[in-house]
Design a protein around this nucleic acid. Sequence first.
DNA 1: AACATAACACTAACCGTTAGGGTTTTGAAT
DNA 2: ATTCAAAACCCTAACGGTTAGTGTTATGTT
Lengths: 201, 201
Amino acid sequence: MTEPTGRRERKKAATRQKIADAALRLFLEHGYDAVGIRDVAAEADVAVTTLFSHFASKEALVFEQDEDFEQRLTRAVTERAPHEPLIPALRREIQALVRHCTADSAAPIWHMIDASPALREYEESMRLRHAESLATAIAADPGLPGTPTACRAIARFVIDAYSLARDAADPEAAVGEIFQMIEAAWAVTCPSGNPTGTAGP
Amino acid sequence: MTEPTGRRERKKAATRQKIADAALRLFLEHGYDAVGIRDVAAEADVAVTTLFSHFASKEALVFEQDEDFEQRLTRAVTERAPHEPLIPALRREIQALVRHCTADSAAPIWHMIDASPALREYEESMRLRHAESLATAIAADPGLPGTPTACRAIARFVIDAYSLARDAADPEAAVGEIFQMIEAAWAVTCPSGNPTGTAGP
DNA sequence: AACATAACACTAACCGTTAGGGTTTTGAAT
DNA sequence: ATTCAAAACCCTAACGGTTAGTGTTATGTT
């Protein structure tokens, strides 16, 4: 048996990071559109084909931790405390994610994203994927009552909440406001009685 | 003064239509990815640059009546009967749109769209625009009580309903199910009393 | 009749992305 | 230790969507 982290994997991760760092540095300095793939590859001192073996597209260079986001969402559903109701768990997670990406340190990156139509479009299609996997996680929980359609709808609404809150003047308040709506939308999918353990009468 | 439709405008519209027809014909026959822009231009007997002066991108050739969709949505809000509640009016319109694009005659086109990631991504970003203009229309109605954030959220939910219903096994039932959720979400934005004229208790 | 401009054509390029084909590094098995 | 297969990397050349630059023709106006 070998160690979980062989030299090969370490080198590969290092190369990936080197590319991502070079890309972000150039993008922030000169603007996303003004920097070409060939520039990034040169700055990272790798071949263009190598770059594309680590990242599926130019946009993916920016949304590097895409999968973290997806995992945090689905884990908020699958690994929540037993009998904890669904919506508050999601609300907490979305609140944390919004706080994280509206922090001052992330401001330049999001400014860059907002300035590029290509990046906004990419982020949108990312969110669609996230909504779909969130819907799967929700539908897989046997303790939840929603139909597949209701699960997909709630998943979309949750992702919408994240997206809208990021743009809102007061992100945290927006999360609260939209989750009130989501809570009501979810409650209506439970015919009667104790909706998802929200402590009924 | 000249006629509202001069020769110039007629010729321009004819060229545009000729391009769109040629594109759809080729796309449906050989597949979207297998047909290049140069092929479409040749089939329509125009220069590539002319094609791009009529359509902003290859994907836009497929979603030709994009603006119709947008207008129908906003008009469902702005031109609804006086005192008619918002959500049912939107429900009717979405129902009609879903029926329209799940009709058998539209099946080949939507099959083509589902088969191409580029087209799906483009449609997604189109929906974002539509949600934004729908939100503006809702927020502009002085008879409605929602905050700007609530309006934007409801607009997104409505577009989500359209998108999800199209993919559902029973589209019409899905519209009904999701709009029950939307109705509840909207009701919660009205502190108390008669929520948007839905005939309170 | 003369002019301004909209619509169109042509060429050549830019840029993201991929195919094809080769070299070096790594991990494992003899 | 040697050998081997695969992973990671490199280079070149191209493909396909898109645009800039530069003319040409058709149309509406003066």
